[in-house]
């Protein structure tokens, strides 16, 4: 067995360079003759989604750089080192760790991969940290994997260094403004105590409040878009309320409850929370479960179900978080992301 085939999923993490180095080194140790490195980048969205183009370009440049790293690392040895690159997941929508593990395993089976080298800081897309569940999912698959022993660099310090100021300032601003709304903004005493309270809140809570640090032009724009979104949401709530009231008050009560599953195309974290919250807030639809981005929604009447499958709220949430461009996506029904489950709970 002269050839060792390694699968290295890459992402833009601070330790990706070390992971590639470890993969080449460990691969050469176990098979000195030929080493085949499969460098892959998994992208979370389908190619027809607007933000995908950016992710694809990023993936390609990362792959190019990684190939030069492998060549660098293998320069001193006499072994043959081959590089294969691929972008995975561009033809489907990856929702969570389970999907990533499945994608990697399918690739591994296709290319006869011996081992997967995992970057401890692996972060596909800009979603919440997923490494822990990904490890668990990979352990469940038959694919053997090793985690690259990297040193977490001082980069972490620097990241929190720049980001913590924006967290601190935004939290201070929010708590100060809230204090003044409750109090009297023209009274000097409230201004002084408000500053004190805002400082205390910001010092103690700024690193737990935001999962991602607010950035200057984007975050205020999102708040403004949220202000546009609220009247739309209220309109939807009133519409749904009237429909549901008519159904409840009609003596025959023509309800048709169904459990449905909708795969929402919003990022996890705050956007997903906002979407699930809005779905529950409109009477007629009720979010029962969220497995990654798969929302299990109980719908009471047909009209509410149609509205849900038309994805108006989903598009509005995408508008709030990503702007008007990315709001133009096909409805969940056109994407085939909807499913009516007659049974109760999932798996």
């Amino acid at each position: 067995m002269g050839t060792e085939r390694l699968l290295v999923p890459l992402s833009r993490s601070p330790t990706v360079r070390q992971t590639v180095a470890y993969a080449v080194q460990s691969g050469l140790e176990s098979s000195p003759e030929t080493l085949s490195c499969h460098l892959v980048v998994a992208v979370p969205y389908e190619a027809d989604v607007p933000e995908e183009q950016e992710a694809l370009d990023e993936a390609r440049s990362l792959l190019e750089r990684a190939v030069t790293w492998v060549k660098e690392d293998a320069a001193g040895t006499e072994a043959t080192v081959e590089c294969e690159t691929a972008v995975l997941g561009s033809d489907e929508y990856l929702f969570g760790p389970k999907d990533y593990a499945r994608t990697f395993q399918a690739y591994a089976e296709e290319h006869d991969i011996d081992r997967l080298v995992l970057d401890p800081e692996y972060q596909p897309g800009a979603t919440a940290p997923i490494l822990q569940p990904l490890e668990r999912e990979l352990a469940r698959c038959s694919l053997p994997f090793t985690e690259a022993p990297v040193e977490r660099p001082a980069q972490h310090e620097r990241l929190t260094g720049t980001a913590s100021w924006s967290r601190f300032l935004s939290l201070f601003g929010i708590s100060f403004a809230f204090y003044l709304i409750l109090g009297d903004p023209t009274y000097w005493f409230d201004l002084v105590t408000g500053t004190a309270v805002g400082l205390i809140v910001a010092v103690t809570l700024s690193h737990v409040t935001f999962s991602t640090a607010p950035t200057f032009p984007e975050s205020p724009i999102r708040v403004l878009r949220l202000v546009v979104y609220v009247p739309y949401l209220i309109f939807e709530i009133i519409k749904a309320n009237i429909l549901i009231s008519l159904v409840i008050l009609r003596p025959s009560m023509p309800i048709n409850p169904r459990m449905t599953q909708v795969n929402a195309r919003v990022r996890s974290g705050l956007p997903l929370l906002a979407l699930a919250n809005s779905i529950t807030l409109t009477p007629g639809t009720l979010t029962v479960r969220a497995n990654d981005q798969r929302l299990l929604v109980h719908t009471l009447i047909d009209d509410a179900r149609e509205d849900l499958f038309d994805g108006g709220l989903e598009r509005a949430i995408r508008f709030v978080f990503h702007g008007r461009e990315s709001a133009r996506i096909p409805t969940p029904r056109e994407r085939g992301d909807t499913e009516i489950l007659n049974g109760g709970s999932d798996e």
Partner: peptide, 12 residues
């Protein structure tokens, strides 16, 4: 499940 739908009407 159905009752949870309409309980949210009171609040909204």
């Amino acid at each position: 499940y159905a009752r949870a739908h309409t309980a949210s009407q009171t609040d909204t």
